[in-house]
Design a binder for these strands. Structure first.
Lengths: 224, 224
DNA sequence: ACCTGAACACCGTTCAAGT
DNA sequence: ACCTGAACACCGTTCAAGT
């Protein structure tokens, strides 16, 4: 079905874009555990070895996917431009825009982007040290913090803190989604909504964390 | 060398404790990628299938390891008692103890515990939904926050926020350690100490994040 | 109580060769 | 420019059987 074999001939010919699209489809439908090079090749109607013409190894493939997951236009993004420099600025005259609102919006947009693909947070997390997508996200968060009265290094560290929290939270969230759908429930972690909503994983716990960080920054700004 | 074959006989007999100790040795010396069931079996002088008498599957093995990594006595822990209830209280009369100091100490202790094993943060993160170790850590953080003037649900959410930040930060940190030791450097992420120390990954960026969170909590406490 | 032996159904990656 | 075919060196897990 996704093989897309050329009408008459045998060997299907693909671009890197095709490969990434197919990989992301598998990721979303079956999860990271099922995203193997062999399964990906099969979904493209191609031999596994063919993938290594497009990509040097699986790790790079995952990094490219992470890049795409994170590069969807967020709250500050212009729709259609998927890649923007990390230090992108929003509208030049930022007067009247509350930086806390901007940072909050960016954080929520990043969470949505991660939630848009199954295991999105794990893919992006596992790829952190390779740069690319994660750096893009941190750049956007840092840009959103322009306006807070912070030294450049403090702004960078604050953006990193936000990013780490977001990845940690969403990953946990997606692990629970998967565990629940598999019926696997850990002893302490009750699956019934009663306990879930009353505890650290209820709705709003993400916003709580973001606001906590932003409150900390605001307190710092006041002390200068 | 680690086979520990009984002097005279053929089949080596082991306890779950032996298995976990051998697994943690591999983890620390060779990393998570090399911690396979087959390699673990070989290090114990046993067939791979023998491991499945001690443990139902690899995921459970990793969860048990995560539990041990996290359960080292932290700042508030009594040395020797490795397992304590999640809602453990520290000394009853907490008057005079600054909760911010307690939470900070607990966060630093957790980071040290994660750093004590190669890929520690990834192992614990991947095991979050299974409860065990991660829950223990969150419980200790929540306990340390007793004294901050917070509603119980807020305290739980704050502990979760701290935990997610810590895992995200240390995982990133350990990824960089491994990337550096392999000589793999990402385009943007310069390996030279000049850029590293000037940015979000310099020394102190962990403390910065923790303090940011604690400042946010302090600001909240003031508003009540 | 703890392990062997053999098998099943997979992996990622390389490399010469094809078109 | 993009793919095949065949191979290499691995995986996690199951299960009957042994002691």
């Amino acid at each position: 079905m996704t093989t897309l074999d050329t009408a008459g001939g045998r060997p299907a010919r693909h671009s890197l874009d095709d490969v990434l699209a197919a990989a992301m489809a598998i990721l979303d439908e079956n999860g990271l555990a099922d995203l193997t090079m062999r399964r990906l090749a099969a979904s493209l109607g191609v031999q596994p070895s063919a993938l290594y013409w497009h990509v040097p190894n699986k790790q790079t493939l995952l990094a490219l996917i992470a890049d795409r997951i994170v590069s969807v236009p967020g709250a500050a993004g212009v729709p259609g431009t998927s890649t923007r420099p990390g230090t992108a600025t929003r509208s030049p005259d930022a007067t009247g825009i509350d930086w806390q609102h901007a940072a909050r919006a960016e954080a929520l947009a990043l969470r949505d982007a991660l939630l848009a693909y199954r295991d999105g947070a794990e893919v992006v997390s596992s790829t952190l040290a390779l740069g690319l997508g994660a750096d893009d996200a941190r750049g956007r968060l840092a840009a959103a913090l322009t306006g807070a009265d912070l030294a450049p290094s403090a702004r960078e560290m604050a953006a990193a803190t936000l990013l780490h929290f977001i990845l940690g939270h969403v990953w946990h969230e997606q692990q629970r989604l998967q565990a629940d759908s598999l019926g696997v429930v850990a002893p302490g972690q009750a699956a019934d909504p009663l306990e879930a909503s009353a505890s650290h994983h209820g709705p709003g716990s993400f916003e709580f964390g973001v606001d906590l960080l932003l409150d900390g920054l605001a307190a710092r700004a006041l002390r200068r």
